[in-house]
């Protein structure tokens, strides 16, 4: 199998028979899904269909919720992430996450970007500066903030804050970036910038993005997964899902008949 760059590609994620419960309520039902390297996978579906939960399970952010119980396998580079030998801290350095609401720390722009490298033991100021510049360039924010790296991150606009969060995630040099509705709280211009950015990011990262915005999914993703009531209804190439969906429910959803 070859990906878009023509290189031999591999499966970054292989989800096998994943079930997840919040207390007694089953939120994910027998999910099977494979994610290819350097692709953008969009996850769509109505509110409460389990798409956010699914993405959070991929780097075990659901660990923080005590009532969550999971069953099944998620292989990350053929290693089960629920295996007791898998350290969750290590997994999360490989699989970064960008959240729905921009969540920079109340620190300077520079300190935000180098937070990850710092906690993972990089001390040299020079190295940290290099990482900061590289990450901010990568997130298309460098030109806007290079003269005020020591300013508080909360002085940035919402869209800039979100790109800062993307830069912060990139600074840990992950393989995968999970995005949970990253543009939900942004205006159309900021949203467009982030979408353009994702096109670039794709070359180096595998991206899995949850979105409520159907056009966004159609515009940016290579594959689309449609979730409904905790089930994966359809998962295929984006063109196929939007152009010629196999399932009636997918068609109803993307044509706006419900959800």
């Amino acid at each position: 199998m070859r990906n878009l760059n023509g290189n031999k590609s591999k499966f970054v994620y292989q989800v096998k028979g994943l079930n997840l419960w919040y207390g007694d309520k089953q939120v994910l039902k027998d999910i099977n899904m494979k994610v290819l390297e350097n692709e953008i996978t969009a996850i769509i579906g109505p509110s409460g269909c389990g798409k956010s939960t699914f993405v959070k399970t991929l780097n075990r952010m659901t660990d923080n919720i005590p009532i969550v119980r999971t069953e099944g396998e998620i292989l990350y580079n053929s290693q089960d992430i629920f295996n007791s030998e898998m350290k969750v801290e290590e997994l999360r350095t490989k699989v970064g996450m960008v959240f729905q609401k921009p969540n920079p720390f109340p620190k300077s722009i520079f300190e935000n970007v180098v937070y990850g490298p710092k906690i993972h033991g990089i001390k040299s100021k020079k190295t940290l500066m290099e990482i900061a510049e590289q990450s901010l360039r990568g997130a298309a924010l460098w030109e806007e903030v290079k003269d005020r790296l020591s300013d508080n991150a909360y002085g940035l606009s919402g869209g800039q804050q979100q790109r800062l969060c993307i830069a912060r995630t990139m600074a840990v040099s992950p393989e995968v970036i999970l995005m949970d509705e990253p543009t939900a709280s942004l205006d159309p211009v900021a949203t467009m910038k982030i979408e353009e950015l994702m096109e670039d990011l794709k070359k180096e990262y595998t991206i899995i993005i949850v979105t409520h915005n159907m056009q966004q999914a159609a515009r940016i993703s290579d594959k689309t997964a449609f979730f409904l009531s905790g089930e994966l209804i359809e998962f295929d190439k984006t063109n196929k899902v939007f152009g010629n969906p196999a399932d009636k429910r997918t068609e109803d959803y993307i044509t706006g008949r419900f959800g």
Partner: peptide, 14 residues
């Protein structure tokens, strides 16, 4: 706020 803790955990912090 919880979202700041999430941000930190999300980068592999214990």
């Amino acid at each position: 706020p919880g979202f700041l803790r999430e941000a930190s955990y999300g980068m592999g912090a214990d």
